[in-house]
């Protein structure tokens, strides 16, 4: 399977229709999630009244923050072991997009936190801290790539850092979990199944799927840009050689 997807031409052909499909489906899912979340779902006074509707953006953003770093780590690992160029192109594309969703998670969380908990930010909250450090890991990754003078070096250094970050995440998570937590416990994925009413859960899941599709579409578009940039660079250097 890897070798099939490792071919940039096949990827270009596949993403040619898959990326627009992801955008269309993602937009539909997000629109449905926002409509259900803003107008249909009843407000929950216990979660702060109308402000809880930010959940339909906040929870998908949190899910994507974690998923995108996992994707970055997996892509880095694949590149580091098998040296499939497409994996590095994917890693390079994922980092800034994942960082934006991580920032979105932090921002919506603060907006939700101010009226319900009375604070924009809580230093001893485990989840806020984990997401913040995830954000810093993304920033470090992008800064390191930008500082390297060749593409190959950027790929290698980035892959090492992403993998070191990935094996540290459980430890970071565990250490911040030792803080007493203000954040509510997990309520979608638990051992006894979802603890949430279907009127909230369905739009939340649809919204999460929509954000994931949008993320996938953006990553594919960014990868296509990168492939073409590399192609341009190659053609240019060939032109120079001809002189």
């Amino acid at each position: 399977m890897w070798t099939y997807f490792a071919n940039p031409h096949k990827f270009l052909r596949l993403s040619d229709w898959l990326a627009p499909a992801f955008y269309a489906l993602g937009a539909a899912c997000i629109a449905y999630g926002i409509w259900q979340g803003l107008w249909v779902a009843p407000k929950d006074e216990y979660q702060g009244g109308d402000i809880m509707r930010v959940m339909f953006v906040h929870v998908p953003a949190a899910w994507l923050a974690m998923a995108s770093y996992s994707a970055l780590a997996i892509a880095s690992f694949v590149w580091f072991v098998w040296r499939h160029e497409l994996a590095d192109i994917a890693a390079k594309a994922i980092a800034p997009i994942g960082a934006v969703w991580t920032a979105l998670c932090l921002a919506t969380g603060s907006i939700w936190g101010k009226p319900t908990w009375g604070t924009w930010w809580q230093w001893d909250d485990a989840r806020m801290m984990s997401v913040l450090f995830l954000f810093f890991l993304f920033l470090g990754y992008m800064a390191l790539r930008a500082a390297m003078d060749t593409r190959q070096k950027a790929a290698r250094a980035g892959a090492i850092l992403a993998m070191v970050g990935a094996i540290n995440i459980p430890l970071i998570k565990f250490s911040v979990d030792l803080f007493t937590s203000l954040h509510q416990d997990a309520s979608v994925i638990t051992a006894d199944g979802p603890k949430m009413a279907a009127v909230y859960l369905t739009p939340l899941l649809v919204s999460a799927i929509g954000h994931s599709l949008l993320f996938g579409g953006l990553v594919m578009t960014s990868m296509r840009t990168e492939i073409r940039e590399r192609r341009i660079a190659r053609l240019r250097s060939r032109e120079l050689e001809a002189f």
């Binding site: 450090f133 810093f136 470090g140 800064a143 390191l144 500082a147 540290n168 970071i172 250490s175 030792l178």
Partner: peptide
């Protein structure tokens, strides 16, 4: 590279600082 080292290493310092 000094500032870069800080940005890379500080998230990894978290568990030690907390414990």
């Amino acid at each position: 590279g000094g500032l870069l080292i800080s940005l890379i290493a500080l998230p990894l310092y978290v568990p030690t600082a907390i414990f």
